[in-house]
Computed example of a mutant assay.
Amino acid sequence: MQVTTKAIVFSSLKYGDTSLIVKAFTESDGLKSYLLKGILSSKRGKLKTAYFQPLMQLELIANHKNKGTLETIREAKPIHPYKTLHTDILKNSMVLFLAEMLSNSVQEQGSDTGLFHYLQYALDWLDHSDPEPNFHILFLLNLTKYLGFYPDNEYKNASYFDLQEGMFINAPSLNPILEGKTLENFKHFLGINFDVLKTVHMTRKDRQELLAKVVLYFGLHLHGFRKPKSLGVLNAVFN
């Protein structure tokens, strides 16, 4: 079936000498994988390699068989050409990290317009704002709303947060927990939007410690989750 849909690129993997396998989250059908034959050798085709950089927002005309096999794309065009995401070194390091997190987190599923519109909004916000070193932490915590494990805020004044149970507790458990300064920093991100990120202040060390715990939180709640290789690159850039 031929469809016209918006899509956000999660990853591109070289296949053979001339082709790409692209994983993208579509507005119409959720997560899809496409085989783009010969795109690396063609200079005059309707598909350009540059369109399939991480987190590019595209409009696709695609063939969806919906049989669990690789789909095909007939045409693609950018719908929100970025001004800074792929040129600013801090933002680009975030993009690479978040694209890998999304690729490892969003499972095979049908259409989820709420998640799609959240991704659109967040990426557009980052593109049009000054580099914000805490953006990726809030992005990931907000993402858990759509993945089904956003932290339970009922006992927010408790002394610990149980990462396995996703809730605040008054006494430490045997599960991985947040406590002390890391817990206080964690609380700052709950219930806020991107526009107030500048009010959240952390040292580089505290940010890295909290981010490591957030990645662990994903790993505890998502079957088959892989720790992103780009995490080390992101931390190095922010050093």
Results as ranks from 00 to 15, higher is better:
V3T: 15
V3P: 09
L13G: 06
Y15Q: 13
T18G: 03
F25L: 12
F25M: 06
Y34R: 00
Y34V: 06
L36I: 15
I39T: 09
S41A: 14
S41D: 09
K43A: 10
L47R: 01
A50V: 14
A50S: 15
Y51T: 03
F52L: 05
P54W: 01
M56I: 06
I61N: 13
N63V: 15
H64C: 11
G68Q: 13
I73M: 13
R74M: 13
A76M: 13
K77C: 06
H80L: 11
Y82Q: 11
K83N: 13
T84K: 11
T84M: 09
D88M: 11
I89C: 08
I89E: 12
N92Q: 11
F97L: 11
L98R: 00
A99C: 05
E100S: 08
L102N: 01
S103Y: 07
N104P: 05
V106F: 00
Y118S: 08
Y121C: 09
A122D: 11
L123Q: 02
N134R: 14
L143M: 08
Y146P: 04
P151Q: 05
N153W: 04
Y155E: 08
K156F: 10
F161C: 02
F161E: 01
N170L: 09
L174T: 10
I177F: 01
K181A: 10
K181E: 12
F186P: 00
H188F: 04
H188I: 02
G191E: 03
L197T: 06
T199N: 14
V200K: 10
V200R: 08
H201G: 01
T203W: 10
T203C: 07
R204I: 07
R207E: 09
L211F: 03
K213I: 03
L216M: 14
G219N: 02
L220E: 05
F225I: 04
V233C: 06
N235R: 06
N235S: 07
